[in-house]
Write a protein that binds this DNA or RNA. Structure first.
Length: 667
RNA sequence: GUACCCGUAGCUCAGUGGAUAGAGCGACAGAUUGCGGAUCUGUAGGCCGUAGGUUCAAAUCCUAUCGGGUACACCA
């Protein structure tokens, strides 16, 4: 093509440099134009010639040097150069390439040697996960898989915020229960059919409600207790009353984390390591970070004003008048009582991710937490003085975790400002490169549709289109409830068709596919309005549709085999004419590696979901518009289609695995 | 107040400056002598929030404006 451009410029005796003429090769907008097209309208101004004339001249030049893969070249208004490929020749190349690569079709080597940390899930360890957390973990896990497909060495971090206010609230709740100071709606004890995280959710919402009643005696007492608990947790001390709050908080967090991991495993989500906020505190990483920030003169401690007695990071232009009164974009890192805020600890954690904690002389020990459902070993952090280290036999080298080149934090968009504070802190500490390699992958929140909110008993009389969730207020759909509802829905569909129940494992995998797909199909800036009927739908643009298409393709191959048909060892030659649906499917298979690479680069799981849907739709189209292969009498056609279905199952299977589905060969 | 995000079919959403703006759901009408109907085909449905501008070309870029949301907490 570049040669042809040069020939053309010579022919026109133009002094223009060929590099100024963009060769924008793209798929044709319509099949009637061709397979690929290049618009040359942009060349018109530089060459001072009408675009159609340019296209026609290029057509003549290219035709003179045409290659076997190109069947036809045309020029059309207002100035497109169109190429129609020799479909049988190109189709054969595509199929050969896919089947030769097999499970590696789509895999790239670009990322080899680069370590990337993806932090996701990060649910406060004080309550059950809800559907908002699922958006986070589904995006995060898909990004992990996408990056791995490009060869990156990816570490999935599930950071546990076990020393913040939220955990303290539940500890407060248990303490008040023990003293008989509170009644929890639904029962003070954990119910027989209730998991621990659900129980804690009830305790948490009850305590939050009391805490909000600031004027009441109980409200003030709760606030006071919370402060005491928080302080005790941070410093690892028993309280004045003798209760060991740190141990209570740790036990609570561990049990909740187990529950979260179990929930996530139902969606095929696993992790490499659990970094604990408490470990960052107790190993002294925050203290060292704090000292470094102070010694570089980056912190201030105002004597007066709203932040009197706190250590703040100056950030912004001072106080501003807002609708809610005076606000300041300065960030408080250490509260007036000496405890660190979440952001403070997050700065320390971000340093650790890049291996910068080594320079501070802080080290962690890494020991196994357990083997996950998928066989992947999950590791956890321990501080150097942890007595349990003495009984550990399997310890990883300290360089196994952290020490990343790039860090991607999957966190909702409401925390953009705080993420900026973290990255800016790294920059001010002189870690420019690390700041540049820190990426906040921000996504919008999940809200509930009016219909779904009403089903939960929320007052929707104000007529709004959607309602925000709130874990504190208990306005939410819990993750496990959604998964259970999806499993039940898959079985209902079977019943409606008078078919036998699905094996439980199949129903679970279908439900997981439906939910994962729903959670990533929207672009990240879009608020998801979750509607129960919509998310559980088994047809149309859904994860179930993808699984169904994949199962059906596999079914065809099974039926061919059962009928005694042996697919030839080699695909000799394709039929002279391909059906449009066959060609569309082939072309879509062909672009998979490029699309996967592109979407990974953009960190855009929604685009990969869309690709997978289109692939399934093209297969369905092919399936519906070609006669059954079982009865095909033309051996050449039969062999080609058998190969085409094989290439489809291979590509579908590959993309479904990147999406975190377990592909179902039959449903 | 300042900053960021969203606004496209009745609903939920795609759309990377390029040819006639697409898909799913819903509505209506069809397809199973035939490999899995959780499928497919067709019909109806659009001043791409509004107004300017840049460009050969704008849903896409710029400016203004309207509507909705979020952040600027000693919560995270």
């Amino acid at each position: 093509m570049q040669q042809a451009v040069a020939t053309y410029l010579e022919q026109e005796q133009s002094s223009i440099d060929a590099t100024q003429l963009p060769i924008d090769l793209r798929l044709s907008a319509q099949a009637s134009f061709g397979d690929y097209s290049i618009p040359v309208m942009a060349w018109s101004g530089k060459l001072k010639r009408p675009p159609l004339k340019i296209a026609e001249a290029m057509q003549t030049i290219l035709q003179a040097n045409s290659q076997a893969v190109i069947q036809e070249i045309t020029a059309t208004k207002p100035g497109y150069l169109n190429f129609r490929l020799n479909r049988p020749v190109v189709g054969q190349q595509i199929i050969d390439r896919v089947l030769e690569a097999g499970a590696d079709f789509g895999q790239q080597t670009l990322g080899i040697g680069t370590k990337v940390i993806v932090e996701h899930t990060n649910i406060n360890s004080n309550k059950a996960a809800h559907v908002g957390h699922l958006r986070n973990s589904c995006i995060g896990d898909t990004v992990v898989r996408m990056l791995r497909s490009q060869g990156y060495q990816v570490e999935a971090d599930n950071y546990i915020d076990d020393s913040g206010v939220q955990v303290a609230d539940v500890v407060v709740g248990f303490e008040m229960l023990k003293k008989g100071l509170v009644n929890i709606p639904g029962g003070n004890e954990q119910q027989a059919d209730e998991s621990f995280d659900y129980y804690c959710s009830r305790v948490y919402t009850t305590v939050s409600k009391i805490y909000d009643e600031k004027e009441t005696e109980q409200g003030q007492m709760t606030a006071h207790l919370r402060k005491e608990v928080l302080h005790a947790i941070e410093h690892g001390e028993k309280s004045a009353s003798g209760t060991n709050y740190p141990v209570m908080a740790a036990e609570l967090s561990h049990k909740i984390v187990q529950a979260h991991l179990k929930t996530m495993s139902r969606l095929n989500i696993s992790y490499d390591i659990l970094p604990w906020e408490s470990a960052i505190l107790h190993a002294g990483l925050w203290q060292h970070t704090f000292e470094m920030l102070k010694s570089r003169g980056l912190l201030e401690k105002p004597e007066t004003g709203h932040a009197a007695g706190c250590w703040i990071l100056p950030f912004g232009d001072g106080d501003t008048q807002t609708n809610e009164g005076d606000r300041s974009s300065d960030k408080i890192l250490v509260r007036s009582d000496g405890t660190a805020t979440y952001t403070a600890k997050d700065i320390a954690y971000q340093l650790w991710k890049f291996g910068l904690a080594d320079q501070l002389g802080v080290d962690f020990h890494f020991v196994p937490w357990g083997i996950q459902y998928d066989g992947r070993k999950l590791w956890t952090m321990r501080t150097p003085h942890d007595p349990q280290l003495q009984i550990v036999t399997d310890e990883a080298p300290t360089t196994k975790f952290g020490h990343a080149k790039r860090v991607i934090n999957v966190i909702d968009v409401r925390q953009s400002y705080l993420q900026q504070v973290v990255y800016e802190s790294l920059r001010r500490l002189g870690y420019e490169e690390q700041a540049d390699n820190s990426k906040h992958l921000a996504y919008e929140v999940v809200t509930l549709s009016a219909a779904t909110a009403a089903q939960l008993g929320i007052d929707t009389s104000d007529g709004r289109e959607y309602y925000a969730m709130s874990g504190r207020k208990g306005i939410e759909i819990k993750a496990d409830d959604l998964i259970n509802a999806a499993i039940a829905r898959m079985q209902e569909v079977r019943k409606q068709d008078n078919k036998a129940d699905l094996p439980p494992e199949t129903a679970t995998l279908l439900a997981a596919s439906a939910i994962r797909y729903f959670m990533i199909r929207f672009n990240l800036q879009q608020i998801i309005t979750l509607d129960m009927d919509d998310v559980l739908r088994p047809n149309g643009d859904t994860g179930v549709y993808l699984q169904y298409a994949y199962a059906r393709a596999n079914s065809i191959l099974r039926r061919l085999q059962d009928a005694g048909y042996e697919i030839p060892a080699r695909l000799e030659q394709l039929p002279a004419q391909l059906e449009q649906s066959e060609w569309d499917l082939l072309r879509h298979i062909d672009v998979y590696p490029r699309r996967l690479a592109e979407y990974t680069e953009q960190l855009a799981p929604s685009l990969l979901a869309s690709y997978a849907y289109d692939l399934a739709a093209h297969f369905s189209d092919f399936y519906e518009h070609t006669p059954p292969m079982l009865k095909e009498t033309d051996e050449q056609v039969k062999a080609f289609r058998a190969f085409l279905v094989q290439a489809t199952t291979q590509t579908m299977g590959n993309v479904l695995r990147v999406l975190g589905f377990k592909p179902l060969e039959r449903i």
